[in-house]
């Protein structure tokens, strides 16, 4: 697929072109500029970006699958970026979120893209953000970002979302404790999934308490209960998402979040774009280990 075909294909919502474009940007291909420069900014502005995070196995993918079905019932085109961690040792990844969404595989208005974190220190926001923009530009709204909420990089990605849901399930006690600090803060909606399982009521009560606390501080955290595997509670969840989106758009929160995400992406891209040159400069500076690394870094930056 050459440059013209690609850009043309993107305009025409050709699934191959969309898929290719995401890979090229993710791989840092020179065509990335042309691709990202051709996107439909107004569509991107209008699209809802929905973050879906939570501990492993909480039901994020199953929930995403149901939300897809919900939006498809209203004929909305929808995109999913499902992010899984890369292996720290090999750099490879097992991408398994799609399994639960396969019933939509033949629907040309459902685009699911699996993405690995690739162990990047930075760059993940840039890559995921670009994928979101490509999907939104092709008419997808919402675009769902699914990511396991464990590490810092995942926390960063979730900041790309307009509305964030934290999916929890009973029986995952320890994880929830560990997450409370970080993720509970960024979540707009606390979803208690697997409401059919023992412990769901208790978890929901805990979450209500958290939500109340947040509302006392002026936040607007909501709690929803779902049984993703049976499609229960999905409509209510979607309503809650939409109500929040509307509230955020009207109250300026939406713009504030978009600005924040934008800045984050710009920073990430800046570092990404600098990286090759920096690596080259470091390599050129030879194998002497004189001087403090920080001072050396400052020196290199002055040359740029």
């Amino acid at each position: 697929m050459n440059r013209e075909d690609l850009l043309q294909g993107l305009k025409g919502r050709d699934p191959r072109a969309i898929a290719r474009a995401i890979s090229l940007v993710e791989d840092g291909d020179p065509l990335a500029d042309a691709i990202l420069g051709s996107l439909d900014e107004s569509r991107i502005e209008q699209a809802l970006v929905l973050g879906m995070t939570g501990p492993p196995g909480a039901g994020k993918s199953t929930l995403t699958d149901q939300i897809i079905a919900g939006y498809r019932a209203r004929s909305q085109r929808i995109g999913v970026i499902a992010i899984d961690p890369s292996s720290a040792i090999s750099g490879g990844a097992f991408l398994g979120d799609r399994i639960r969404m396969m019933r939509h595989a033949l629907d040309s208005d459902v685009i699911v893209r699996s993405m690995a974190t690739r162990g990047r220190l930075g760059g993940l926001c840039a890559a995921a953000g670009a994928a979101v923009r490509i999907l939104a530009s092709s008419g997808c709204s919402p675009v769902i970002i699914e990511t396991v909420g464990v590490g810092q990089s995942e926390m960063d990605i979730i900041r790309l979302a307009d509305v964030t849901t934290l999916v929890l399930a009973p029986g995952l006690g320890d994880d929830i404790q560990a997450m409370k600090a970080g993720l509970l803060e960024v979540a707009d909606i606390l979803v208690v999934n697997k409401a059919d399982c023992v412990g769901a009521e208790t978890l929901a009560m805990d979450m209500e308490a958290v939500a109340r606390e947040s509302r006392d501080k002026g936040g607007s955290t909501e709690v929803c209960m779902t049984v993703a595997s049976e499609g229960r509670g999905i409509a209510e969840l979607m309503q809650t998402v939409e109500a929040l989106e509307k509230q955020y758009r009207q109250g300026g929160e939406h713009a504030r979040r978009r600005q924040h995400a934008y800045d984050l992406e710009v920073l990430d891209w800046a570092l990404e774009l600098l990286r090759p040159e920096l690596l080259e400069k470091i390599a050129k500076s030879g194998s002497n280990r004189t001087g403090d690394p920080r001072l050396k870094a400052a020196g290199i930056l002055r040359q740029i």
């Binding site: 398994g96 399994i99 639960r100 396969m102 019933r103 049976e230």
Partner: peptide, 8 residues
């Protein structure tokens, strides 16, 4: 009864 789908 509905159908079960692959849990991977």
């Amino acid at each position: 009864f509905g159908e079960f789908r692959d849990a991977g």
